[in-house]
Simulated scan of single mutants.
Amino acid sequence: MASFSSLPVYWRVCLINAALFLLATVILVVSPTSVGPDMSLGELGVLAVGLGAIMVANALLLRSSLVPLDRLVGQMQRMDLQGLGERLPDTRDGSLQPLVTSFNAMSSRLELERARSNAVALAAQEAERHRIARELHDEIGQGLTVVLLGLQRAVADAPPALADELRTVQETARASLHEVREVARRLRPGLLQDLGLVSALSALATDLTTSTGTAVDRRFDARLPPLSEEQELVLYRVAQEALTNAARHAGARHVRLQLGVDPDGVELVVADDGRGLDGSPEGSGLRGMRERALLVGGRLAVRSPGTGGGTEIRLRVPVRAEVPA
């Protein structure tokens, strides 16, 4: 015979209430106290105490059956994109354990599916970036090169007054060609694939100092754990966007770029001495960084450390086993 704790909740509630009403009926039968229209105050008191005892006993007995359900509902309400890895603890309630097991299995499947879909989304984003970079280099870059060659011949054949104007146009075209090549290079991080994450971050810091004059203090931990290609790419893109924001939008003169070991994985920190957030809403750059962090199960925190301005962006990426294809 099945134990009481293994019965469905519906039948357990019915049995608890039936047992309490049966007990109350037995007590009324064997008790010398009579119940009628001419009850005394003492008899009313006894009846009130008995009713209260029944209600308290019923509440205590039902609580042990329904509290696990409330805990499950609360867990499901708190569940979000960052909490798919949470699991309900096992319960001693035999009737609710299958529900807890099913919920944990569903959470595991959702987490696995999210990891797979995130990997696909990240690959699609990078493929689109590579396509745009290739078109910039092959189409626009070559077109500007042809324009520069034509301007060079035109300057050689033009009269002096017109030659000066053509040289100005030539310099503008040359600057545009350089900018197109820089954009294409940023869209396709070849150093990340060839030399690794630390070298690619060092190159980002060098480029920022060369182009804007912003000093970058680099602090890279030599004991970094192995990272997947997706994790390295997200760390690189977040650092790239954060450094760009610090120099171009915050007007920072000094930036700290740090990559170290976190208790659960790795942590990237980009802190600057610029204007800070000043309570302004997040722009598309920060929203893009948050979305990228979610792609690898990471957490992005943005804050202004002190009253003197500045912004600190902190990305924590957990190191997990690679998701099977």
Rank of each mutant, 00 (worst) to 15 (best):
S6V: 02
F21G: 01
L23K: 08
L23C: 02
A24H: 00
T25A: 15
T33H: 04
V35I: 10
G42Y: 00
G45R: 00
G52T: 09
A53N: 00
V56K: 00
A59Y: 07
L60G: 06
L62Q: 11
L62G: 01
L62R: 00
R63V: 00
P68D: 02
V73W: 06
V73M: 06
Q75N: 03
R78N: 13
L84A: 05
G85S: 14
E86M: 12
L88V: 09
D90R: 15
T91C: 02
D93I: 09
G94Q: 06
S95I: 02
Q97L: 10
N104V: 05
S108Y: 02
R109D: 10
L110I: 04
E111H: 07
E113S: 13
E113I: 01
R116W: 07
A119S: 15
L122I: 05
E128L: 14
E128N: 12
E128S: 15
R131V: 08
I132R: 11
A133Q: 12
D138C: 01
E139K: 06
I140N: 01
G141V: 07
L144K: 10
V146K: 11
L148D: 11
L149Y: 04
G150H: 07
L151M: 08
P160F: 08
P160I: 05
P160R: 07
D164W: 07
E165D: 13
T168S: 11
V169N: 00
V169I: 07
E171G: 02
A173N: 01
A173S: 07
A173M: 05
R181C: 04
R185I: 00
P189D: 01
Q193F: 03
D194C: 00
G196H: 11
V198R: 15
A200T: 05
A200M: 08
A200H: 06
T206G: 11
D207H: 15
A222F: 09
P225G: 04
L227I: 04
S228H: 06
R237D: 10
R237C: 01
E241M: 12
A242S: 13
N245Y: 12
N245Q: 10
H249F: 06
A252C: 03
R253Q: 13
H254A: 10
L259N: 10
V261Y: 03
P263G: 01
P263Q: 02
E267W: 01
V270R: 03
G276S: 07
G279P: 10
E282N: 01
G283Q: 03
S284T: 14
G285K: 04
M289S: 12
M289N: 07
L295I: 02
G297D: 08
R299F: 09
V302G: 03
R303Q: 14
P305K: 00
T307V: 09
I313S: 05
R316P: 00
A325E: 14
